[in-house]
């Protein structure tokens, strides 16, 4: 399973929906339940799954899933 597929699994787990198929250009508006409150659950889940730490600047500048994935790959 590549990293993008693994990220997709994390999305499915965090937002409790096995139908989710992520794409780089997708944003919170495209996924049910992804709002400003639940966003942090996604960040924490990604951090623990990959054993990485995002900085505040990283997290605040994500505009879509592509940005999150790029930042994630740069830390692996």
């Amino acid at each position: 399973m590549d990293n993008f597929e693994k990220l997709n699994q994390i999305f499915r787990m965090v937002f409790d929906d096995n139908e989710i198929t992520i794409k780089p250009e997708m944003t919170a508006n495209d996924i049910d339940g992804w709002d400003s409150l639940s966003h942090i659950n996604l960040i924490v889940a990604v951090e623990s799954a990959y054993g990485i730490k995002f900085s505040r600047k990283d997290v605040l500048s994500f505009k879509n899933i592509g940005d999150l994935y790029k930042c994630l790959e740069s830390k692996l």
Partner: peptide, 21 residues
Amino acid sequence: ILDYIFKPLQFEFRKWVRWGT
């Protein structure tokens, strides 16, 4: 306030899991 106060605070407090948000 969501972007410039809440989000940075929520990020800092994420170590407190349930209570952070």
